[in-house]
Simulated assay, not measured.
Amino acid sequence: MARRKEPTVHGVAVVDKPAGVTSHDVVAMLRRRLNERRIGHAGTLDPSATGVLVIGVGHATRLLRFITDGHKRYVGEVVLGVETDSLDADGTVTATHEMAPVDLDTVRALIADRFVGDIEQVPPMVSAIKIGGRRLHELARAGVEVERQPRPVTISSFDVIDSRVEDGRQILTVDVACSAGTYVRSLAADLGTALGGGAHLRNLRRTAVEPFTLDDAAPPDECELLPIVDAVRGMPQFTVDGPLAARVAVGSVLPAPPGDGPWAMVTPDRQLLAVYEAHGDGFAKPSVVLPQPS
């Protein structure tokens, strides 16, 4: 069996994903542009959605889970009175409701009562979650609907920032900050149901993948390749050198630094050596040790 070629290009790219392409399409674009096969992304965006998509290149792919697990922020439009099978504008309309315009104070009070904090959410059928070894969107395309168990998610904030009427339908512009694994489509649909009718989501834009924002992002053909250490910019970072750096480089267990972790261990010249996580009482061990240039 041929040995897998070691990556030669390393770093992080923050892409402003355009509409009409998949997250995998963006990965393919960066593979061609950078001439590097080992590339992955942190957190899928639906094809119609736009905004922040964090790409790991080379050794940085080993750090993507720390970004994927972070909080995210979105803006989008909730169309009241129309339900779709995908819960967004890409789907087929399954039901319509005559809904009188809703006062924004009423909507905000309902959201604060039911949709902020730790909640449970049933994932949509049109999603990448696997059940029985098959992705839900594959089952949905085959006309099969399966029972999905609610999943815990955290909604840090859910704000209605604008309302207007378009073609007789009330459109709510929302700004949502949430944990990884949250489906904003489901929030929109559940809000419509709670208001006595139905709804779907459109024009979703991800404005942040903690700690990256749209200010860091650029289109796939323009985005900058940032150093690997930028992948851990949201972590506590500790500078190590000399004998301690040598111990980190070989994956030694160390006394835990202050705080909860994970912790990034960097050299004085800002090279990332490893990421450590808690290990037992008062200790930490590396979950990722990165190769260093010889």
Rank of each mutant, 00 (worst) to 15 (best):
G40K: 07
D113S: 08
H10G: 07
D88G: 10
S86W: 03
V79R: 01
R114Y: 07
L87W: 06
S48M: 11
V21C: 07
V93T: 04
A100W: 06
T8K: 13
L87T: 04
H24K: 09
V27N: 01
N35K: 15
I119V: 14
V93E: 03
T50W: 11
V126T: 10
L139S: 12
L63D: 09
L64D: 11
A28L: 15
G133S: 13
R32E: 15
V26S: 03
V102I: 13
L45R: 04
R37P: 02
T106C: 06
D16M: 03
E120G: 13
L87N: 05
L80T: 00
A109L: 03
L104G: 11
L64W: 02
T44C: 12
A49L: 12
P47C: 10
V126S: 00
H24G: 02
P123L: 07
R108C: 12
V82H: 00
H71R: 15
I39N: 00
V107F: 04
A128P: 12
P101Y: 14
T68D: 08
F66C: 05
S86E: 06
R135Q: 15
P124M: 08
G132I: 08
V14Q: 05
R114T: 09
L139P: 14
L64H: 05
T50V: 00
E36W: 06
G51F: 15
D85K: 08
H24L: 09
A42D: 07
V79Y: 03
R73N: 12
G56N: 08
V122H: 12
H71C: 08
D88A: 03
T61I: 04
P7E: 00
G56E: 14
R134N: 01
G20Y: 01
G117W: 11
D69A: 14
H97Y: 13
L64N: 07
V57I: 03
E138F: 01
L64P: 07
D25Y: 13
